[in-house]
């Protein structure tokens, strides 16, 4: 217990400099007789100031687009909502419900149109030793021009050299009835990453980064204007995220 009328809350408020002048005078008079306590509180005040100063730079940083463009997410997950909708329709409509359920279940999603094809393509070409790509990185300009022409949108093969990944090359792939591009990157240790690019399959202009796990692979995927991207690698989410950010930055210089 504190001696006299001074409480712990007063001392905390003194450290935060939130006391009214009169109260502050009382507290400081009390502290003047408690040098050890006063020294400890003064140290805490300095720590406070260091805390504030250390993180002040974050306020001045540009806000990443994925935050300014964040989209609302309901209280119920989209998957649950879809199931709930299907169940409701079933109850209402009998046969009609079954038809709708089939429709709901097979409606194309980013997962079915982007993540899965990207993960399949990754799995197929990952172990390839002699022909991992159709066009190698030493013809990068030609590679990018060719794939851009086939997809009908200007593509980029972002440089990931800063995080130790070198472009191996790329290839043309099918994505449903249309074309897709795959760029492959390799690390010194032999690990491989692929960036899969196809036409935006949905109606959304842009999405934030999303994450999926396909078997042992991690996938970050997003939509940006006319194109949709999926970055796949055999690593943790934590390891893949900074690379996905580098890819994004490289695509939007």
């Amino acid at each position: 217990m504190q001696p006299g009328p001074i409480r712990d809350a007063d001392l905390q408020a003194w450290v935060d400099d939130r006391l009214e002048p009169e109260r502050r005078a009382v507290v400081e008079a009390w502290l003047a007789e408690q040098p050890e306590r006063a020294a400890a509180l003064a140290r805490q005040r300095r720590a406070n100031e260091r805390l504030r100063a250390a993180y002040a730079h974050v306020l001045r940083e540009p806000v990443p687009d994925r935050l300014t463009q964040a989209r609302p997410r309901g209280a119920v997950s989209p998957g649950l909502r879809r199931i709930a909708a299907a169940v409701a329709l079933l109850l209402v409509g009998g046969v009609a419900g079954w038809v709708v359920r089939d429709h709901v279940a097979t409606r194309p999603t980013l997962e079915s149109e982007l993540v899965r094809p990207a993960a399949f393509a990754h799995t197929v070409y990952l172990p390839e030793v002699r022909h991992p790509v159709e066009v190698t990185a030493d013809q990068e300009q030609h590679l990018v021009a060719w794939l851009s022409k086939r997809l009908g949108s200007p593509l980029r093969a972002p440089s990931l050299a800063a995080s130790g990944w070198q472009l191996v090359g790329g290839r043309l792939l099918p994505a449903g009835p249309g074309p897709a591009a795959q760029f492959m990157y390799e690390e010194r240790g032999g690990n491989r990453l692929t960036l899969f690019i196809r036409h935006n399959p949905g109606s959304r202009e842009a999405t934030a980064f999303r994450f999926a796990e396909e078997g042992e692979f991690s996938v970050f995927y997003w939509v940006d204007g006319p194109l949709a991207y999926a970055l796949t690698g055999k690593m943790s989410r934590e390891a893949l995220l900074p690379i996905a950010e580098l890819v994004y930055a490289g695509l939007n210089p």
Partner: peptide, 9 residues
């Protein structure tokens, strides 16, 4: 991002 998505929803 999680916080914003949830708040906006």
């Amino acid at each position: 991002q999680d916080c914003l998505e949830r708040a906006l929803g």
